[in-house]
Amino acid sequence: MSIKLTPTVSVPALQDKARALRLDILEATTRAGSGHPSSSWSAVEIVATLFFGGVLRYRPEEPDWPARDRFIMSKGHAAPLLYAALAHAGYFDREMLSHLREVNSPVQGHPIQGLMPGVEATTGSLGQGLSVGLGHVLGGRLNQLDYRVYVLLGDGECEAGQVWEAAMAAAHFRADRLTAILDYNKYQETGPISREMALEPLAAKWRSFGWYVAEADGHDFDSLMAVLDETQRVTGQPSIIIAHTVKGKGVSFVESDFTFHGRALSAEQAAAAREELSHVARS
């Protein structure tokens, strides 16, 4: 029997956490002078819900706790978000974020498994995380542990064949402990997804591969909690949450300009973004 998911913190507290994560992403990438702030910002509420909404079971003081729930950042370019979330979760000191992309720093440009606690997979070449997640599910079965595995996919990433190899295999193995969350921000590096490589009908594709498909507003905590609760009740098949998001969410001039992919903000832009993020009204 599934237990009803209940947020361990209130929605306003989650909104505060989201704001803090966005600011940390801004500061880390601005200081580094490169990185993917817009791709990180689009998934902030998704990651905040998992880590701080009471979804993931984890022990920062015991990163390799065998029974932990897994979170795999398959869209590895959102490393600044992963690092910020892990720091806020207590895996390491937030001061480490200021060393993003530096030589001799374990906080590398893309996540490298083993360098930082809580980083479950080496990602950055897209398409790989879902397979690793399925391996964790099969390993959990053999080890008789009932943890869940959450994999954050990018939308452009779903153009990669390996994603569909993993999708086929996860359904074959009835991996109902596996939940993919698709950060559907509608843009890939060079432009709108619909223009560069049509993904739609996306939900139908996943359904036809044997997955349970749910959709959510990827910036609304209530919506995310509701679909996470819904997918946890699914048995016999893996689930995917197609989370509709906005690339660059939170900073208006980034939201309206996809060319920010893979680009840090200038000092002036960062100041404007800091101002905007610091004064987000609580809804």
Binding site: P66, G139, L142, E165
Partner: peptide, 22 residues
């Protein structure tokens, strides 16, 4: 585990199993 004719996924799943102490 037979992962079928899909080597990319085969290796990724193996990596996940290794991370579980297998």
């Amino acid at each position: 585990f037979n992962l079928g004719i899909a080597e990319s996924n085969l290796v990724g799943v193996g990596a996940g199993l290794a991370a579980c102490g297998l």
